[in-house]
Design a binder for these strands. Structure first.
Lengths: 367, 367
DNA sequence: GCCCTTTAGCAACAGCGTTGCTTAAGTGGG
DNA sequence: CCCACTTAAGCAACGCTGTTGCTAAAGGGC
């Protein structure tokens, strides 16, 4: 229980919600196998009786169900509890320059429906909102049978934008999008809550929920180079959703001119090397930036993703890893920061976008 | 009310402590003038009656007192409440290679006693602990009259160390300190709680408490170059207290060799320029690193400190500011990130160290 | 089959912030 | 000057939280 919610005081209602979210989060990580009431009590520090009461409420709400019994340890066996996946759903929308991906996920984050189609950001905001809305409606309507409440739509896009207000700042190449309130426009059109975030943040959130613990950086190497930062389990967006601008970090003073106007940005160096076919150099440059990040933030893990990484994953992991290993050796650290390819692949951003709506249920704060 | 305390559940006792800390924090920021119960209620979202109950408990504990009345706005005038400064004290200890500074501060953070003396880290751990302990005892004993409970001692030192366990990793130039459990040794010797942290973190904490809001970076340019990061009001230390290693960020790939063994670190470039007498170049290099930091973390403010900055404050502020201004212009941001010289001066680290013990009282989480 | 161990729930309870109302302490109009 | 009005602060009762004490349920081992 800490102060991050804008300095607000807490009453009994807040307390209840907090503990309920805590339980749900533990139940989610436990997965299909479930977790017993007593283990929930141990993990939270609450009394078993409190856990019984809280889980009873969650069962009444249909969010939690019993899932068999565990082996006895000499007495009455523990009853496992698990999340009810179909108790709630969320849509994740990944909008790119020329393509749209949409997923419908259940409460556990499992994908129960997906769609993919062309998109033209140049067609104007109204047309794009309409296309996106139709995809969402198709996805939600296309699933047969009873569908637990759809909590809303998470939208992930590249480029600078404002998560708090759901407004786009700029969409590279399409000045007509400047300042467009995408969140509210889509919410009004669909009649359900919408949350907007950067693609890299959505991907990082998805990875955090999937089980990556502690603090890590997700580096995305695609048409641009960006990062999603997870610090202490929460996505770090900064005051204006600007955090994670990894690509325009300068690592070569007075180096070649970058598209942003500065010189020696990691993006121009890295993508330049890729263009020359020198993947090892690209990985080395990326590694230097990653090492800067690791030192600055003391993170535990670096995850790589994006089209360019996907083309040669091992070489990038090896190249970035080499730089981090060298750094660890210089520092005398016991073990270097590991580097891996992010799971999720092409759908990772859309799945993470859906988590923008699920996360609050599990006590993952908005910031 | 958020989840940062290791996943623990919250009971009524935790709720009470949380709201009490919230009140104390608001009372502290209100300073000598105080703040009315109703304003506390507005700021926290709690009902006026709840505020009355909570502040009544705090008054019973002697932490809060009435401080006059405000002007009437047509009815009964509001009663101002303020912290009782002498209700608690803490010691801040700043240990450098060759010098020791110690301050005794009251609950509001005001300095009520200070000491300064030579120190030789090469004299060995036992001797240093003894010298430090004597300074603390002298400081605590030297204040006449009733002294509210001394909560403990905050110790700030350079170099890599582990805040969580209170253990030094390395002290540059003194290998015999490797792994020394300074926190526990000093705590045993003094019989009071001790908290250990990096000097830059202590300075940043002190600045955060002094009223710098939101997220900022404190860049310290002294014998080395380090940073203290405050994100969302809390010091970001990272998993192993390693965060803030700003100086060994590479900004000149394959540049000159640094003392750390890498090439093109900001520290070797910046201090090299200072050595050549080229302050403007040093400021430009520092600015490039600051711009990287601003982009990566989306912070609101950059504060400069340390001996070298103190020698030519305006030129550093101007030089770093110019780089950040150029960056803001490229980004099309409405206003550039401001740069200032950190208040606190030579005693800033020691004062911040004392806040390591006061901060928990005011709900400023340990991490 | 009995005893023991362990789990889960029922009932009473202390303590939290909230609600409804009363008292305190000012201002300002007639 | 006094009285009506406004605003602040506290008292009492209340609903709800997690906790405590105890009981019932359910399995294993001798």
């Amino acid at each position: 229980m800490n102060r991050t919610n804008g300095g607000g005081g807490a009453n009994l209602y807040a307390l209840r919600g907090y503990n309920a979210a805590l339980m749900l989060d533990l139940l989610r990580s436990a997965g299909r196998a479930g977790i017993s009431r007593l283990e929930l009590a141990e993990r939270t520090g609450l009394t078993p009786q409190a856990v019984s009461k809280i889980t009873a409420r969650l069962r009444d709400d249909g969010l939690v169900a019993e899932a068999g019994r565990q082996a006895s340890t000499g007495g009455k066996p523990r009853t496992s509890l698990r999340l009810v996946p179909e108790a709630g759903h969320a849509v994740g929308l990944h909008l790119e320059r020329d393509e749209l991906r949409a997923v419908l996920v259940d409460l556990t984050g499992a994908v129960v429906g997906e769609r993919r189609g062309p998109l033209d950001l140049g067609a104007g905001s109204e047309a794009v909102v309409e296309v996106a809305a139709r995809e969402v409606e198709g996805l939600v309507g296309g699933v047969d049978g009873e569908l637990g409440a759809v909590l809303g739509v998470g939208v992930a896009m590249p480029g600078p934008l404002d998560h708090t207000h759901g407004v786009l700042h700029r969409v590279t190449g399409f000045p007509e999008w400047d300042g467009f309130p995408l969140r509210d426009a889509l919410a009004r059109r669909l009649g359900m809550p919408v949350v907007l975030d950067k693609d890299t943040n959505a991907a990082a959130l998805g990875l955090a929920v999937e089980g990556e613990v502690g603090s890590f950086a997700y580096l995305h190497l695609g048409t641009g180079l960006g990062a999603g930062l997870v610090l202490g389990g929460a996505v770090h967006r900064g005051a204006h959703t600007g955090a994670g601008e990894f690509g325009h970090q300068v690592i070569q003073l007075d180096g070649p001119v970058c598209s942003c106007g500065d010189r020696g940005c990691i993006e121009v160096l890295c993508l330049g090397a890729v263009a020359r076919g020198d993947v090892d150099e690209a990985a080395r440059v990326l590694g230097a930036g990653a090492a800067n990040l690791v030192g600055l933030l003391d993170i535990d893990l670096v995850l790589l993703g994006g089209r360019i990484v996907a083309a040669e994953p091992e070489r990038f992991v090896r190249g970035v890893g080499a730089v981090l290993d060298a750094r660890a050796q210089r520092e005398g650290a016991s073990s270097p920061v590991p580097v891996r390819v992010a799971s999720g692949g092409e759908w990772g951003v859309a799945e993470g976008a859906a988590q923008l709506l699920l996360a609050p249920l599990f006590g993952r704060a908005e910031d």
